[in-house]
Write a protein that binds this DNA or RNA. Structure first.
Length: 585
RNA sequence: GCGCCCGUAGCUCAACUGGAUAGAGCGUCAGCCUCCGGAGCUGAAGGUUACAGGUUCGACCCCUGUCGGGCGCACCA
């Protein structure tokens, strides 16, 4: 091993490169993309690769012949592997040395919270933007899923060697905020017994009334009397709303490196972006988009009312960059559409040095991916700069029955409601458990159960159980072994160590695929692996002190891995779980 | 009408970017504590991966079509 934070993955890659060179096989750039995996089937070894099968065609040799050549030249010396075998149609299967396995618990404990960390991301700067809800109401359930996934992804990327940061984009410059201000002014007027018309599309939620009543009385009265007083109400509403959202998220354990206000882009950055697009010749002025089909034209006609005015607008030639149609970036009245500041914002991200922007969006925005991507390509940004993860909707259930999520006061709808009902740990575990592309059925009754139906408790229980057995060992005067490698005497022990050995690879894979759900999946498997071991092997046995000390250390290593995984999820790892009344059912 | 996402065991979901015999939990059935937390463990049953073609050594994964479910569709964000 070349030292900590080096992946077995890297060792394999180097070994394969050496073997290919020695065997005289030209892999081209294939090696960079080849699959190195941990096989599901343990009898297939600890690592496997399909490299030989990939190269067979170009090498004009049967896959097994290529595999044999690679196996023959693979330099095992100094690697974690003792053997490489050719199997099946041409797989190369690698097996860990016993000494590597025996040394692993020592290594896990010495690396501690850093076990699993790697340099796979090579320090690439990645900005993860998520939630970014309009500052016009409290955090809701949809945001709760995005917050759990986004914050976990940031930690995951960091652990895999990316330079990651989190950001919340605040739409504080649009109509919606003006409407909020107007709504607030009207509610304040109502509060002091005056009348002021409530805006047509205003925010009718009870929370606006609450916030209005908290405004400083004298200042608010003065603003109400001024002709431009709506602006004061807007600014007040904005500040209070953002603080509220920050509080809600903080209670959930989610914070952001930066809250980016859209308003800072106006007018400078927005104008500059428009000029750049014009200079690049990717815009035109027209009443209608160029090259629309008759069918599309008919639809425009049908939507004229909703579409707004007719007149000369500035269009982006989005179709040249993969979009299905051209898009307006400046309305006929001169105001920019949402697209232009969005482009300006992402240009700003790129200018700050981020090589990748990962955005978490709701399913209602998926069509916008091609539009924004087209806008960024039109500016000359890398095609793969923007990476959008669609976080699918959440269906709340209670004992199998759908829970209505309504904006109206009193109904179950907010993040705070959710935390109050099931707790932040459990909510996050459930949100992270599924891939973001899956619709998620969230059963409140299930999440509240503290029993075996609940995977969040299954993992936390494994951790608590380990802490308990370590405490038991201490009672008996048995401490975890230090220094010397672990003696593995039982198949269940070896199986557990091998599971723990995969952790750095799981972190790397999950980070590069941007799939945080692999973490809870791994933790559930690890917990199961631990329980199996615990069932098969007595850990704290005064009659066998030497063996006990080795097993206690293995337990401590397992606890460390569980803690590291739960930490990535933002879920706590309690040392004790108290039985609740419901849990006894 | 067009576009995107989804469809895997009775239910909720995995399957490591195209790999070896598609796996977990719940539910059902049958077992396991003189022992460290039974909130646990072991086993059984349960599948034409919606359907029909195609691509190749190999497909839940890629391509085409069909059927279902969700979402979006033009100077709202």
């Amino acid at each position: 091993m070349r030292g900590e934070w080096t992946l077995v993955w890297n060792e394999l890659r180097h070994g394969l490169a050496t073997a290919l060179a020695a065997a005289g096989i030209d892999a081209g750039d294939r090696l960079a993309k080849v699959e190195l995996a941990i096989p599901r089937e343990r009898s297939h070894g600890d690592w496997t690769t399909n490299l030989a099968m990939i190269l067979a065609k170009a090498a004009k040799q049967p896959p097994r012949a290529v595999a044999d050549a690679i196996a023959k030249h693979f330099p095992l010396e100094g690697t974690p592997f003792s053997a490489v075998e050719v199997a099946g149609p041409g797989f190369l299967n690698f097996r860990y040395r016993d000494t590597f396995v025996a040394a692993l618990p020592v290594r896990i404990l010495s690396e501690g919270g850093a076990y699993g960390r790697s340099d796979a991301g090579a320090g690439e700067k990645v900005l993860v933007e998520f939630v970014s809800a309009n500052p016009t109401g409290p955090m809701n359930i949809v945001s709760a899923r995005a917050a759990a996934v986004g914050s976990s992804l940031v930690r995951l990327l960091d652990m895999a060697g990316f330079a990651s940061a989190s950001e919340f984009y605040v739409n504080d410059a649009g109509n919606q905020v003006d409407l909020l201000g107007e709504s607030m002014a009207a509610r304040f007027a109502e509060h002091i017994g005056e009348s002021r018309p409530f805006p047509e599309e205003g925010y009718r939620g009870e929370y606006v009334r609450t916030l209005a009543a908290e405004l400083p009385d004298a200042e608010a009265r003065a603003a109400l009397a001024r002709p431009d007083g709506a602006r004061w109400f807007r600014d007040q509403a904005l500040v209070r709303m953002i603080e509220w959202q920050k509080r809600d998220l903080a209670a959930y354990g989610v914070t952001f490196d930066r809250w980016f206000l859209e308003s800072v882009l106006h007018p400078g950055a927005v104008d500059k972006t428009r000029e750049q697009l014009i200079e690049r010749g990717v815009t035109y002025r027209a009443e209608k988009p160029e090259g629309v089909t008759e069918a599309a034209e008919a639809r425009v006609g049908a939507n004229e009312g909703a579409a707004g005015g007719s007149g000369i607008a500035l269009w982006l030639r989005a179709t040249q960059f993969g979009d299905s149609m051209d898009r307006v970036i400046t309305r006929s009245d001169g105001r920019p559409t949402y697209l232009l500041p969005d482009i300006a914002y992402h240009l700003d991200k790129r200018t700050r040095g981020f090589r990748t922007a990962i955005n978490l969006w709701g399913p209602d925005h998926h069509a916008y991916i091609t539009t924004l991507t087209a806008g960024l390509k039109a500016l000359g940004l890398e095609e793969d700069f923007l990476h959008v993860l669609i976080v699918q909707q959440v269906n709340l259930l209670r004992d199998g029955q759908a829970v209505k999520m309504s904006k109206r006061a009193g109904e179950f709808d907010t993040l705070t409601d959710l935390i109050d009902e099931v707790g932040a740990d459990c909510a996050k575990f459930f949100f992270l458990m599924r891939s973001t592309t899956s619709h998620l059925d969230f059963d409140l009754a299930l999440a509240k159960k503290q029993n075996d139906e609940n995977p969040a408790f299954y993992v936390q229980y494994a951790h608590a159980r380990i802490c308990s057995v370590i405490a038991k060992g201490a009672e008996l005067g048995l401490a975890a072994a230090t220094g010397e490698p672990t003696e593995l005497t039982d198949a269940a022990e070896t199986s557990l160590v091998r599971q723990l050995a995969t952790w750095p690879e799981v972190v790397r894979g999950a980070a590069q695929a941007r799939e945080p759900h692999r973490i809870p999946t791994f933790l559930v498997e690890t917990a199961a692996e631990f329980h199996r071991f615990y069932h098969a092997c007595r850990v704290a046995d005064p009659a066998q002190p030497a063996l006990s000390r080795h097993r206690l250390r293995l337990c401590a290593a397992a606890a460390q891995v569980l803690r590291n995984g739960l930490a990535l999820m933002g879920v706590s790892a309690p040392e004790r779980l108290e039985r609740s009344e419901e849990g006894l059912a």
